[in-house]
């Protein structure tokens, strides 16, 4: 009989027993509800192999491709190592700073070289730790085989990590990162689906990844990006985005400033309000929301009510990743 390894323990399954049944029989506490593949509360992730296809029924493509499955439907034929879906199990690894470039008064682009073993999809995010504080940053580039990660770091007044990155971190320094997380990724299976991307502040990073990936993969339907900031100091990448609109006629770009009387070339108002007023019917669209937590939460509800299917709305739940991160290894074991 196949066995499953979960949190360092090995459990042997009985004939025809599901992963969920096996875990519960051993008094392992895992969330479950309907036990018939409907409610998805028993979602887990296979660490090192693909789970059986029937155990991925009804899951988003972005989850399937990363090995998520439903424990109640999973009757493995061979041994499996599994973990909870929060990715908290992902190890902290050492990355090296190979570039710092200021993108605006407030925004710094940090370029890291990551280990060979580290892979990500454009639009995902990673965690960074410094002085026992963890922060999440989206990766702004598309994987290119160069093992580089580009992050956009907005300097928050009195923000410990963002000020450390802006002021103290130097090219050549090592730092520890964990990830990747999140399902803010492009779906190459639907090139003819209109895309609406709304980001505030450095939420633009993830959206940039999705946009470049979509354009590289030949997305044919319109792509609408709305980037919002309170003030001009949080606006960045305007030249790059404007250049993209010239090269790709189906790519549209609007910068929104919520402060009073924005200069010409900028749209007054909050990005989500402007975007959803301009596109009130989102049936059949795919929507990406990144940035301020309240904006993401409100816009998600509005986009859904405007007709977007829930499975077609991607957002980065940054606030969860913090609580779920285990302690990283000591600094000594990170030096390379």
């Amino acid at each position: 009989m196949p066995s499953i390894t979960f949190e360092g323990q090995r459990y042997v399954l009985r004939e025809q027993e599901s992963v969920l049944e096996g875990l519960l029989r051993h008094d392992v506490s895992v969330l479950s509800s309907c036990r018939s593949g409907v409610c998805q509360s028993c979602i887990m992730r296979a660490v090192d192999q693909s789970p059986p296809a029937e155990s991925q029924k009804g899951l988003k493509e972005s989850l399937r491709s990363r090995g998520h499955f439903l424990a109640c439907l999973c009757r493995p034929e061979s041994d499996m190592e599994i973990t909870l879906p929060g990715n908290a199990d992902l190890p902290w690894v050492s990355a090296k700073v190979i570039g710092k470039e200021r993108l605006s008064e407030r925004v710094m682009q940090l370029t890291l070289r990551c280990p060979d073993t580290f892979s990500f999809q454009a639009g995902q995010f990673i965690n960074i730790i410094h002085d026992d504080k963890v922060r999440s940053y989206s990766v702004a580039n598309v994987p290119n085989g160069m093992r580089t990660l580009e992050l956009h770091v907005y300097r928050v007044d009195n923000g410990r990590i963002s000020n450390w990155i802006h002021n103290d971190l130097a090219v050549g320094d090592a730092m520890s990162i964990q990830g990747p997380f999140g399902d803010c990724v492009y779906n190459p299976a639907a090139p003819d689906q209109p895309l609406l991307l709304i980001g505030t502040g450095c939420g633009l990073a993830a959206l940039r990844g999705v946009i470049h990936n979509a354009l590289q993969q030949g997305h044919t339907a319109p792509i609408h990006l709305f980037h919002g900031s309170r003030a001009l100091d949080g606006v960045y990448l305007t030249n790059e985005m404007r250049a993209l609109t010239e090269r790709y006629p189906h790519f549209n770009y609007t910068v929104c400033l919520s402060s009073n009387a924005p200069p010409s070339g900028f749209t007054p108002g909050r990005a989500a309000d402007v975007a959803l007023a301009q596109y009130p019917q989102l049936k059949g669209w795919r929507v990406y929301l990144c940035g301020n937590t309240d904006m993401v939460k409100t816009a998600k509800r509005k986009a859904f009510l405007a007709g977007a299917a829930l499975k077609d709305i991607h957002s980065d739940p940054f606030e969860f990743s913090h609580a779920m991160s285990p302690a990283p290894p000591s600094a000594a074991s990170l030096s390379d």
């Binding site: 509800s33 309907c34 018939s36 409907v38 409610c39 998805q40 509360s41 998600k300 829930l310």
Partner: peptide, 20 residues
């Protein structure tokens, strides 16, 4: 919203006579 939708799916499945 995802968790809420999952619960509603279970509810609809129940009401419509599906596996639950």
């Amino acid at each position: 919203m995802e968790k809420q939708a999952a619960k509603q799916k279970a509810f609809l499945t129940l009401a419509l006579g599906g596996p639950n």
